[in-house]
Design a protein around this nucleic acid. Sequence first.
DNA 1: TTGTCGTGCAACTCCAGGGTTGCACATCGA
DNA 2: TCGATGTGCAACCCTGGAGTTGCACGACAA
Lengths: 126, 126
Amino acid sequence: MTDQHHGDVSPVDAVLAALADPTRRQLLDLLAVLGEPTATTLAEHLPISRQAIVKHLAVLDAAGLVTGRRAGREVRYAVRPAALTMTARWMAALASDWDRRLATIKRLAETAEQEAAAGEAHPGGA
Amino acid sequence: MTDQHHGDVSPVDAVLAALADPTRRQLLDLLAVLGEPTATTLAEHLPISRQAIVKHLAVLDAAGLVTGRRAGREVRYAVRPAALTMTARWMAALASDWDRRLATIKRLAETAEQEAAAGEAHPGGA
DNA sequence: TTGTCGTGCAACTCCAGGGTTGCACATCGA
DNA sequence: TCGATGTGCAACCCTGGAGTTGCACGACAA
């Protein structure tokens, strides 16, 4: 009933949920800056435990915003722009849809106003 | 430490948090479709109470995604595309930033690889 | 004025998820 | 081989917020 025309069910759902958390956004920024850090490295840059970071990375991974490559005994994480780009596009489309609808409503309102004015001018026009 | 170059502190924060909830997105869609409904009207279209809807509308309003106009004894809500557009742009910029960084990293890696190969060719080069 | 309808406020329940700690397992260097 | 380092798993606490119900207040119509 809600996302019939936009496909909300898609990754967009997970991406928005993932981006909702400030720590997660911080993590993404950090990821972009550090290149391909490990969870342990990231933990050194944030005031939370490594475990918390791993959980966040799992969420980001599920949203397709991040990938983890195993390298020996460590796991190197990197950012993935694709999902973000897709979501940005989704949002832009939604916004322009709203714009369209609002413009239509405004136009209708103005038309109705004019017709009302015309009705006032010809009261017997009923 | 996180939003120094993107200005994360801005409305974007609130917008993302607001969009994180599926019910809220549903509400936005409904808002766009119905034009300028009241909380009560919206409640008739969703499986939750009016009070819950009012709370959601408050969140959306705080994020700048919605406005409420008083009209007599009722309040008519309407969608506001501006904040969404802004957030979409923010996301797109972030994504392209990631792309830039990833490209740089990749290029550096390839360069290092070539130099390593050159080093192999001239083992005494140290 | 009275009844009705819509909104606003407040208290309450409930659970998802952010964060922690503790420990077991695997990998690397010596 | 052994110690060190990094990861993975599991149990646990605790707060935020989604949702509910109940009621008081304000605005409209008769």
